[in-house]
């Protein structure tokens, strides 16, 4: 079993309250917000490592990100991935999900490995489009399903459970296939000291544009069908009026407010 896991370094989602837009440059100020591996991608990596424990084979992680993300990729190797591929080139910058998934597909092809399964997080914390897994499947002409909470492999088939609004749907996908793994669907393992030592000898191969057989019209910002306009920070603030007193007094005030808002109780 060869499994690829797509991982994306993102600003730590627990700190998004701190994000600001610079009023002059209109750019996002991310200072003081550390980069982490996208939470759902850790669930995907955990799922891959468990499948490897059951069925053998190897787990490769692949990422399209700036070079400084190597540290974060190392963390995936320390968790237990066997090798890593980092697609990194200015030319890929500003890619939307259409061109990101195209570039990732080309990167996977370049590894020369026949992957049986390609896992991604279901959504990234920053963009949160949840597009890349399906679009990667389309580029690679492989079956794909997202929002997966459980995955099992047997006889060349991936049996999966997909979360829908009122329950779960079960499917069998013929391998090779692409799966988007839901956040919180498992408990990603911690990095052990042994893992860190082992990671030192694992390779991170870097691909630039010239290493990949890519069509220039499909990469980076210029190859993206969607184009960003301005960034705005919505003003959601309200004038919170303080209610004080004993719980019983507050309750009486609340009841009046609730009635005034049009609730007949």
């Amino acid at each position: 079993m060869n499994i690829a896991v797509c991982v994306k370094p993102v600003p730590d989602p627990e700190k998004y309250n701190l994000l600001e837009i610079d009023p002059k440059t209109k750019r996002l100020v991310r200072e003081g917000i550390p980069t982490i591996i996208n939470p759902a991608d850790k669930n995907a990596l955990e799922a891959a490592l468990r499948l490897k424990e059951l069925h053998g084979g190897r787990v490769a992680v692949i990422s399209m990100a700036p070079l400084f993300s190597q540290d974060k990729i190392k963390e995936c190797l320390a968790m237990g991935a066997d090798e890593a591929y980092l697609i990194s080139d200015r030319a890929f910058g500003g890619a939307d999900t259409f061109s990101t998934s195209y570039t990732l597909a080309k990167g996977l092809e370049k590894t020369g490995i026949q992957f049986d399964l390609i896992l991604a997080g279901n959504d990234s914390a920053d963009g949160a489009t949840s597009h890349v897994p399906s679009q990667l499947g389309e580029w690679m002409e492989l079956p794909h399903i997202t929002n997966i909470t459980e995955i099992e492999i047997h006889d060349g088939i991936a049996s999966v459970k997909k979360k829908i609004s009122d329950g779960l749907i079960e499917y069998d996908m013929e391998l090779p296939a692409v799966a988007g793994i839901a956040r919180n669907s498992n408990q990603p393992r911690m990095v052990s000291a042994m893992g860190i030592v082992k990671a030192k000898n694992k390779k991170i191969e870097v691909y630039t544009q010239k290493d990949l057989d890519v069509d220039e019209g499909l990469i980076g910002l210029s190859g993206s069908p969607t184009q960003p306009g301005q960034l705005l920070t919505p003003d959601m603030s309200r004038n919170a009026k303080l209610l004080q007193g004993e719980p019983a007094e507050i309750a009486a005030e609340l009841l009046a407010i609730i009635r005034k808002a049009g609730i007949a109780v």
Partner: peptide, 19 residues
């Protein structure tokens, strides 16, 4: 013009699909 949330909704970005 499509307005999409980013960073959990902290930021809203304008998106065009021009071509």
């Amino acid at each position: 013009l499509q307005m999409v949330p980013a960073f959990g909704g902290k930021v809203i970005g304008e998106i065009y699909t021009p071509k």
